[in-house]
């Protein structure tokens, strides 16, 4: 069974593009990363999935149910963390957490306490006194205390310190091992590489690829760094060329033999050929001038 499926999903805000023809498929039990630059359409997609906004075209299903027809039923099984983490400023943290549990008609006190302890959240404070990180922790507790089947998190770690980020992902991994599906959007590609099994990249409202994180990183391109030269004229299949004094670094996706032939004609003093990190791979998809999937 699929946890999330979208079929030709589109959203326009008047004439402005939100998302166009998004076909997304997330298996149940997956740990899925949703990657894209600001304004790419990540939050628009998530808001449609949660029924906050209506799609202009196409359909979306969560756990096999249409997001518009079965909104309430879906939300019972879902935990959502919004990117902005806005809460009622005049309430105390414990009251917000209780309100969230009451809205779900569930007694989550024991689980909420566990989560607060692990995240180091002081529940006696007023929301207006909280930092962004602590507001985020409060939202995390609200989204996780009822142990949902599906977690939809929009930029979950922004504002969290590294220790809490680590603890947060530990909790998510535990929930994922228990069978829950995790769908999160993030700008932090190292997080996606470290924790996600699958990922999709969205750019300018369009889903440009969706695959396992291993495959996404394994594009065949190599990072080549040459010392003793200041140009690589004549060498094809190169991108992301960086030149500093006597060093040239570039991503190469052509035949290895052609690279070696070209190098043999250059006054190279040192050569390093390595796998590009995921960040480099995704930067390719982020940039407009490059084509899609041509690494």
């Amino acid at each position: 069974m699929k946890a999330i499926t979208t079929d030709h999903l589109a959203k326009y805000y008047g004439k402005s593009r939100g998302i166009v023809d998004v076909n997304l498929s997330v298996d149940k039990g997956d740990f899925f990363g949703f990657i894209g630059p600001n304004g790419a359409g990540k939050s628009t997609t998530i808001r449609i999935l949660l029924g906050l906004i209506k799609a202009t075209d196409g359909t979306a299903e969560i756990l096999g149910q249409d997001v518009q027809k079965y909104k309430t039923s879906i939300l019972k099984k879902t935990g959502y963390l919004p990117s902005e983490a806005s809460l009622y400023s005049n309430m105390r943290v414990k009251d917000v957490i209780r309100l969230s549990a009451n809205l779900r008609k569930t007694d989550c006190r024991a689980e909420a306490q566990k989560l607060c302890d692990r995240l180091g959240l002081d529940t006696s404070k007023k929301v207006s006194e909280l930092s962004l990180g602590n507001r985020k922790k409060t939202c995390i507790v609200c989204a996780m205390q009822h142990k949902p089947e599906l977690y939809i998190f929009d930029e979950p770690t922004s504002g969290l310190d590294p220790l809490i980020q680590h603890e947060f992902y530990s909790i998510l991994k535990e929930r994922n091992k228990e069978g829950a599906t995790v769908f999160l959007s993030s700008h932090v590609l190292s997080e996606i590489q470290r924790y996600c099994k699958h990922a999709a990249v969205i750019r300018e409202g369009k889903l440009i690829l969706s695959d396992s994180v291993d495959k996404l990183g394994n594009t065949g391109a190599k990072r080549v760094t040459l010392r003793g030269v200041c140009s690589i004229h004549g060498l094809k299949h190169t991108r992301d060329v960086k030149i500093t004094q006597d060093t040239v670094s570039f991503l190469y996706s052509g035949e290895p033999v052609l690279l070696l032939k070209a190098l043999s004609t250059l006054p190279v003093t040192d050569v390093t050929i390595s796998e590009p990190d995921l960040e480099e791979v995704f930067m390719h998809y982020y940039t407009k001038e490059d084509g899609c999937g041509n690494l």
């Binding site: 949660l50 029924g51 906050l52 309430t72 039923s73 939300l75 019972k76 879902t78 959502y80 919004p82 902005e84 806005s86 809460l87 009622y88 969230s100 809205l103 779900r104 939202c139 609200c142 989204a143």
Partner: peptide, 10 residues
């Protein structure tokens, strides 16, 4: 932006 919080509940 508390509507987002409220409407994310069933």
């Amino acid at each position: 932006h508390t509507a987002e919080f409220l409407l994310a509940h069933p």
